[in-house]
């Protein structure tokens, strides 16, 4: 029997500490996000006072009663063992990168590497957050890195405000169309 985690459809939100994973899930979720944030006790504390140490999730309720779970992975690398478990059976990955972090392009590369197998069988879209306060690197630098990494097709990559439901929904829509451009919402 499959676990509760894999029985529902899942969209995975991952990315760097402070990129806004929990915020993005909260912006999109139909329920109050269940979060397991805790006071950060390591270098993460310099970036934000609390961080997700386990996972958090929200839900999109579809009209027919079906649910889509929105899972957020812990941002800290020491919890990376959870990433594979959480992403099992997922529809695809929304990757959020904090542009204010010391080396966001390296973060991008690291996360794409960590989720390589998952992405190969599904799809990824990338939201770059905090670009208003940290405009560099720009989207073209990210695109160049994606080309260098040989990702094909080129994933969608947008500037994103994790607080904005429109922005988060746009990321998810791009993920769905990447999975199947034949989908029609018109």
């Amino acid at each position: 029997m499959r676990s509760e985690r894999t029985r529902h459809n899942k969209i995975i939100f991952s990315g760097t500490v402070g990129a806004g994973k929990s915020t993005a899930i909260n912006a999109l979720s139909d329920i109050t996000t269940v979060s397991t944030e805790a006071v950060a006790s390591d270098s993460t504390a310099r970036l934000k006072p609390t961080t997700t140490v386990a996972m958090d999730y929200g839900v999109l309720n579809l009209p027919d009663g079906e649910k889509v779970m929105l899972y957020g992975t812990p941002g800290q690398e020491r919890f990376s063992f959870m990433w594979d478990i959480l992403s099992e059976g997922g529809i695809g990955l929304i990757l959020l990168i904090n542009n204010a972090s010391p080396d966001p392009l390296q973060d991008l590369e690291g996360y794409l590497g960590a989720f390589r197998q998952f992405i190969a069988s599904t799809a990824v879209t990338i939201g770059v957050t905090h670009m208003d306060s940290s405009p560099q690197p720009g989207l073209d630098a990210y695109r160049a890195r994606l080309i260098a990494l040989g990702l094909s097709p080129m994933p969608a990559i947008f500037r994103a405000d994790a607080r904005s439901r429109d922005d988060v929904a746009t990321l998810v829509k791009a993920l769905l169309y990447t999975l199947n451009p034949g989908l029609n919402d018109a």
């Binding site: 309720n61 009209p63 889509v68 999975l179 199947n180």
Partner: peptide
Amino acid sequence: VLSRILRK
């Protein structure tokens, strides 16, 4: 499912 998510 993808279509239904999109519609939502």
